Amino acid sequence: KELVLALYDYQEKSPREVTMKKGDILTLLNSTNKDWWKVEVADRQGFVPAAYVKKL
């Protein structure tokens, strides 16, 4: 499975999103959308801005 690194803190703004902290390592589930990537963090799945994460 592919992992991404959170480059910035992100606070979810809708139930479809997830909160992450800078430095978090997240499991990447889907990166087909260039703006929003689906990730899993702490047993929750949701979207984060693609610009806020980097593939490892």
Rank of each mutant, 00 (worst) to 15 (best):
K1M: 12
E2G: 10
L3Q: 10
L3F: 15
V4K: 00
L5W: 07
L5E: 11
L5M: 14
L5S: 05
A6R: 01
A6V: 12
A6Q: 01
A6Y: 01
L7K: 05
L7I: 11
Y8T: 08
Y8V: 11
Y8F: 13
Y8D: 08
D9Q: 03
D9S: 08
Y10Q: 01
Y10S: 00
Y10V: 01
Q11A: 14
Q11N: 14
Q11L: 14
Q11P: 06
Q11Y: 15
E12T: 08
E12F: 06
K13M: 13
K13T: 12
K13H: 09
K13L: 09
K13Y: 05
S14R: 09
P15L: 10
P15V: 11
R16H: 13
R16K: 12
R16V: 11
E17N: 05
E17D: 06
E17R: 04
V18A: 06
V18M: 12
V18D: 00
V18S: 02
V18C: 10
T19P: 07
T19V: 03
T19C: 07
T19G: 09
M20D: 01
M20V: 09
M20K: 00
M20I: 14
K21Q: 10
K21D: 04
K22T: 07
K22R: 11
K22A: 13
G23V: 01
D24K: 03
D24H: 05
D24G: 04
I25T: 06
I25C: 07
L26K: 00
L26V: 07
L26S: 02
L26W: 03
T27A: 14
T27P: 15
T27C: 11
L28Q: 00
L28F: 03
L29I: 14
N30C: 13
N30L: 10
N30R: 06
S31V: 07
S31F: 07
S31K: 06
S31C: 12
T32Q: 12
T32L: 10
N33C: 11
N33D: 15
K34M: 11
K34W: 08
D35H: 15
D35G: 09
W37S: 03
W37M: 04
W37I: 05
W37N: 01
W37V: 07
K38C: 14
K38E: 14
K38V: 15
K38F: 15
K38H: 11
K38I: 14
V39P: 00
V39H: 00
V39T: 00
E40A: 11
E40W: 06
E40K: 10
E40S: 10
A42V: 12
D43R: 08
D43I: 07
D43M: 10
D43V: 08
D43Q: 10
R44Y: 05
Q45C: 12
Q45N: 10
Q45I: 13
G46L: 05
G46P: 00
G46D: 00
F47E: 04
F47A: 03
F47V: 08
F47R: 03
F47S: 04
V48R: 00
V48Y: 01
V48A: 03
P49D: 02
P49Q: 02
P49L: 04
A50G: 06
A51P: 09
A51Y: 09
A51T: 13
A51N: 14
Y52K: 09
V53F: 06
K54I: 15
K54C: 15
K54G: 09
K54N: 07
K55D: 05
K55V: 13
K55P: 11
L56T: 07
L56A: 05
